[in-house]
Simulated assay, not measured.
Amino acid sequence: MPTISVDSGYLTVLNLFTTDAPQKQDRLLAAMREIVDTAAFEGWISSTVHSGQDRLGTANFIQWRSGKDLDRRYEGDEFKHRTVPLFDEITTSMKLLRTEVASTQRHPSLGDTTEISPDRDDYTVIEFFGMDPENQERVIAALGQQEWLLDTPGYRSHSVLRGLDAHTGFDGPFAVSYSQWDDKESYDTFRELPETEWPADRKKTQELLDALVTARDWNSYRVVHTRSAP
């Protein structure tokens, strides 16, 4: 199963889609499964498809050997003339994001590896942050330095991805948080906890993000399919 690691050296691509009808989400998932199951691109490592939960949409967490390998995929006729037009037809927004793993943190009970797979029961949250260029590293550091999460009921892990560039969907620097939770209830409890009950370190992190972040969006997901290169 795919893993998230600072040391892998992989280019991590996050393709985030929203849509406006359940049947369109089903079409998105079917199209993504077809692409993943037939993938034989040079330099492709793995793809893991996520189904949106709180809002309609999908996510694909893709690992590539290098940016050059991904460029060949984007420059191919199939991607430009079949894949992109199909996604344009059934989505309301699309972000194709190139990133690298900046940090990972796990609850001690999960061992040393952050795994992503439909064989797990993670409630996954992907949160996107935009910021001014001079603040990208400060935001990444703030997102990564959250040891107080280890004491949060239901928390499993979170990984911070440094934005490199967006093929489409966003202009400017960005970062992404990919977190895993026991279930929706534990995440909702965490998110909706009154600020008066937050630990001091959470307040400090939130104040910093509020000061630095210029764009923010999130959705929750379940992993529904994955495949890795032989």
Rank of each mutant, 00 (worst) to 15 (best):
T18N: 09
T83F: 15
W181S: 06
D77L: 14
A30F: 10
D171C: 02
Q53K: 13
T19I: 01
D121P: 02
K80H: 11
T205R: 13
L96I: 15
R216G: 02
L208T: 13
Y74T: 11
R65E: 15
V13D: 12
R191C: 04
R65A: 14
R27M: 14
G130A: 06
T3A: 10
L150A: 09
R120F: 11
S103I: 06
S159D: 12
D112I: 04
I4V: 15
D26V: 15
E127V: 02
A59D: 04
T214R: 12
G169K: 05
R82C: 11
A142T: 13
Y187M: 04
E115D: 01
S157K: 01
G52T: 01
D71Q: 14
A21N: 02
E147T: 11
R106I: 05
E78V: 15
A142I: 03
S228L: 10
V224P: 03
L193N: 04
W64N: 09
E100D: 13
P108S: 04
S179G: 12
S93Y: 06
E100W: 10
D77N: 08
M94Y: 10
I116L: 15
R191H: 14
A166S: 15
E42D: 15
L29D: 01
Q136N: 07
E207S: 14
S228T: 08
D182E: 14
D37I: 00
T83Q: 14
Q23I: 05
S109T: 11
R191N: 13
T104W: 04
L161S: 04
I126M: 07
H107N: 08
G154Y: 08
Q23T: 09
W148E: 14
S103E: 08
G52L: 03
V6T: 14
Y221A: 02
M94D: 02
R33F: 10
S186E: 06
L209D: 09
Y221C: 02
Y178G: 01
L110Q: 02
W64A: 09
D217M: 07
F190P: 05
A229Y: 05
G111N: 01
P153F: 13
A166G: 10
D188L: 15
G43Q: 07
G57H: 02
R106K: 06
Y187G: 05
D121W: 00
T48I: 03
T58P: 00
F174S: 06
Q105P: 00
L86Q: 10
S66W: 09
A39W: 04
R106E: 00
T48Q: 09
A21E: 02
E195L: 11
V139A: 00
V224Y: 00
S5G: 07
N60G: 00
G144A: 12
T58Q: 00
P108M: 07
T12Y: 10
I116K: 01
S51N: 04
T99L: 06
L143M: 09
E127F: 00
A40Q: 12
S228K: 11
R162N: 07
A229D: 03
L164Y: 07
T168V: 11
T205E: 12
P230H: 10
I4A: 13
G43I: 08
I90F: 10
Q180S: 04
S109K: 08
